[in-house]
Nucleic acid binder design. Structure first.
Lengths: 343, 343
DNA sequence: ATGAAAATTTTACGCGCGTAAAGAAGTTTT
DNA sequence: AAAACTTCTTTACGCGCGTAAAATTTTCAT
């Protein structure tokens, strides 16, 4: 490779013996030029390693090949995991994904959305903060940018929503727990960060009542995204005050459960379904770490790949439909029960 | 706010009764125009909510206000955490951070670096994959873009490196373990992903020998980024073959330790420093989850904030110095020992 | 009030690329 | 081999903004 730097497409066109518009065409779609021409360009490319200026490319476009991925809290491995799948799919589909985390702050979420608008992305995958989200900011954003909401539904926002079928999550865990032992109490935060928690609580109550059982919801105090710590403190509180009606606890999500298990361990309580176990604990999400808790967590698992695939499909359809659907589409994806040692 | 859309700076200038160059100046530095002028602009901004086209802004710039943050594996909460701090600092300093994860793949790391070059960022924070990195790709990248390496050192690459003082990490844990019980065996992966692991092993051997003790390094098989699973399998293997010389294990990093603890739990071994404990386990990193393991992990903690601050400082200096330092600068940051229940 | 300094306006050009139109060259069909 | 397509070249314009230079206005100190 000669060390000569090419400044622009004009120069590169000259070096490859073609015209600039042809080169431009090639970069927008390599298949749109004749195979022999393509070979000449790619040979020259290997020689001089030129890349068009992305800013010049995009300034005159109404839509770019960028897609945004916005999650509420990236330090939560659940979101890291789901973002990872969506990123991969986006790349495979020829887009450039850009990942943002609101880090749990409304202000940051708003700033991200503002900045993202200016990037003129072809589309955005948005998992909003939930309760802390600024509805009007999200509404404004969705008017400007084709958006697929995921994980946390904000009624009426975006053209599509892809999320969990929370009823399926809870139904499976409750049924399993009831079938194999005493019915569970439901353990959650008093002021949950997103609507999934509320849906799970309602599902729990419904499933329990349908089975003729008395639901028992235990709600612990705590703010923010430090769910594990809240779960641990909740466990201590619950165990101190002996407020559990049975020996079985169903946590609203795995991060709470991880903390809950830590609390049980602190107090010398053995968790599991075997001999000598004082408590069974199950949960929802299949958090990446839930297989390494002690004991490993029985949980209702997100179908990460399926969620990511569905998100991609919806965004594609949305982009092809020009950014608008006739009516908002909601896809809820069922859970898969994963039996481990904790319940 | 009137619903009239402004197309460009020209229109906005007309509406605010000023000239386009003045508006341009304002957007590049609001403090560079007279306060009264600034007020007029900001009043008009509130009315019409105009934002300059970032592509047009950047195409004619040699450097933008973007900074890149590249980590090897974002689903590892350690990197999520460190990225979070660096992001925050970058925003506070007026930059637009863009976060990338190589997801453990060399090919993806190379693609990220290529794409990042085209973004003409003011600077990049790069935590390379380590052993799996393509040295020549990183070298080429660092020639084009002012880069501060962090976490994983690649000799001679980038203008600065900010990392851990691995000796300090290991020295503190080994000293503590020896002071309070039997000396530790060192538990690690046979083919570690990055050079920190090697430095830690060497430090362990050195500290042990200095204390007149016999070092014992246990190296388990395993590839990839699933450290916890490798740690668990390693624990089973080590415990089955009774290859531990003492009751104390020092893991190379917390993720291995999390798996090791899970393995111990599987086998009914109680870990900790108290009565009835069969094993002590300590580690390094202060992974965000290490306080929720069972038992909670005794570990040498990264000073996350200090690392992030140092990275920012170095990149600032680098940018101001025009992208080159006289000589490569290395900053190693010491650990802080965190005592928890596991050892 | 006067002059100097600072801020702003006017004017004008350039950045690198997208893209449209018209004609030339190359390729395939019959 | 001629006709009918494709593909490519030439030419030309526009996108939205940065930025330089010179002229003008405003501000501030004297």
């Amino acid at each position: 490779m000669r060390e000569q730097k090419i400044r622009n497409m004009e120069e590169f066109a000259a070096l490859s013996g073609l015209s600039r518009p042809t080169i431009s065409k090639y970069f927008n779609d390599p298949a749109s030029v004749r195979p022999t021409t393509r070979q000449r360009i790619e040979a020259a490319l290997a020689e001089h390693d030129f890349r068009p200026n992305i800013y010049a490319m995009n300034q005159n476009r109404s839509l770019t090949k960028n897609v945004g991925i916005v999650v509420p809290y990236l330090a939560d491995p659940f979101f890291a995991e789901i973002a990872r799948f969506i990123e991969r799919r986006s790349i495979d589909a020829g887009f450039s994904p850009i990942l943002y985390s609101a880090h749990g702050e409304q202000k940051l979420e708003n700033e991200i959305l503002e900045g993202l608008t200016a990037l003129k992305p072809a589309g955005v995958f948005l998992a909003p903060l939930g309760r802390l989200s600024d509805r009007s900011a999200i509404e404004r954003f969705c008017r400007d940018v084709p958006t697929v909401l995921f994980d946390s539904n904000v009624e009426g926002m975006g053209e599509a929503f892809v999320g969990s079928d929370n009823f399926s999550f809870v139904k499976q865990t409750v049924d399993y727990l009831c079938r194999t032992g005493s019915p569970p109490a439901f353990f959650e935060m008093r002021t949950p960060a997103n609507p999934n928690a509320n849906k799970r609580r309602h599902a729990y109550i419904e499933v329990m009542e349908e089975a003729g059982l008395e639901p028992c919801v235990i709600r612990v105090e705590g703010e923010g995204w430090g769910f594990e710590e809240i779960g641990r403190r909740g466990a201590h509180h619950v165990l101190e005050t002996r407020s559990l009606p049975t020996d079985t606890v169903l946590c609203s999500n795995d991060r709470l459960a991880i903390g809950f298990l830590a609390g049980c361990y602190d107090r010398g309580l053995r968790v599991g379904r075997g001999e000598g176990c004082a408590l069974r604990v199950a949960s929802h999400d299949d958090h990446p770490f839930s297989r390494f808790t002690c004991p490993a967590l029985t949980t209702a698992a997100h179908q990460y790949e399926q969620v990511a695939d569905t998100c991609m499909t919806k965004l594609f359809q949305l982009i092809e439909a020009g950014g608008r659907f006739e009516k908002r589409e909601e896809t809820l994806i069922a859970a898969k029960l994963i039996l481990r040692a904790s319940a």
